[in-house]
């Protein structure tokens, strides 16, 4: 039970990071972006490549930050991957989504995102192969917190949780303390009014993709650190992340954070009552429950 809660919180930390970007995009660009989870894969693989590059260029950085399995090189790779993934999200928007948007076919954006998801996922598979990859070949030993009941925690897990919380807090500060943050919230609430108050809409959309892509990269890397990196990870993560945004209420950043943890916990606690094979269905059950009990989510507002 306690072990399930710990694992759930850990899962929640990367789901939340993924859901934040998704909820922002869904709110500001008004479409369910089915390719958002592919940004997680993109980030995970980008970090893999950057890690190898950094290690090759500066072997000194391959030292581990004990007790973590994380090396300095991978730490640097995480930052590089955030930038690269954010830029990729901007480029994808330029090449595809913006064109569809400017044709006025807002509903078609969903289709376009599904198509993009297929393209990105399978190109990753073609480049990196279908077999799983790991950031560190070493087996990370868990610290035993308690023998009865048996509770295991890996140092990496603690790092992932803390890093996720730090990122979320940083985003909170940006949104609640800076005029840049106000402009993001303003565009989400009323794009036309934001514009006549001097907000550059196109630039804000770029910022949203950068933030969403950056956080997605971290989420993907943390998923890779906790599990493994595979080309189809986006396919497995897309529903949990969507569930997190719906549980929290589409458009609410704080809702996405809470929703991510709820989905993570629910998935792990479900293991107590359901066979493991059913775990992929849990996010859908949560979506159903929220739609029945509180259709606009925990923090959401009704909006047409």
């Amino acid at each position: 039970m306690i072990q399930n809660v710990i694992d759930g919180v850990l899962t929640g930390s990367y789901l939340s990071l993924g859901a934040i970007g998704l909820t922002l995009v869904m709110h500001i660009l008004r479409f369910a972006n089915f390719s958002h989870a592919e940004l997680l894969s993109l980030g995970a693989y980008a970090a893999l490549v950057c890690d190898a590059l950094v290690t090759a260029l500066a072997p000194v950085l391959a030292i581990k930050l004990a007790p973590l399995s994380l090396t300095w090189a991978l730490g640097l790779a995480i930052v590089l991957s955030m930038v690269l993934t954010g830029l990729s999200a901007v480029v994808i928007d330029r090449l595809v989504f913006r064109r569809v948007r400017e044709r006025g076919a807002e509903l078609s954006m969903v289709f376009a995102s599904f198509g993009m998801a297929l393209v990105i996922r399978n190109i990753i598979g073609l480049i990196f192969g279908l077999s799983p990859k790991l950031y560190s070949q070493e087996i990370a030993f868990a610290t035993v917190l308690s023998f009865d009941p048996l509770i295991l925690v890996k140092p990496d897990q603690v790092f992932v949780l803390l890093a996720a919380l730090v990122l979320m807090f940083a985003l909170h500060l940006v949104l609640s303390r800076t005029t840049f943050g106000y402009s993001l919230r303003a565009v989400a609430e009323n794009p036309a009014l934001a514009q006549i108050n001097g907000v550059n809409l196109a630039r804000t959309i770029v910022a949203v993709w950068l933030i969403g892509g950056g956080l997605a990269a971290v989420a993907g890397i943390f998923y890779g650190m906790s599990h493994q990196i595979i080309p189809v990870m986006g396919r497995d993560l897309v529903l949990p992340i969507f569930a997190a945004t719906i549980v929290g209420g589409i458009g609410s950043v704080y809702g996405a954070v809470l929703g991510g943890f709820i989905v993570g916990l629910a998935g792990n606690l479900a293991l107590l009552v359901l066979p493991a094979g059913y775990t992929p269905s849990v996010p859908f059950l949560l979506i159903l429950a929220v739609l029945i009990l509180r259709p606009h989510g925990l923090f959401g507002e009704a909006r047409a």
């Binding site: 897309v238 529903l239 969507f242 719906i246």
Partner: peptide, 10 residues
């Protein structure tokens, strides 16, 4: 409309 898209996918 996003809800239908997500729920049907689910």
């Amino acid at each position: 409309h996003d809800y239908l898209a997500i729920a049907t996918f689910g």
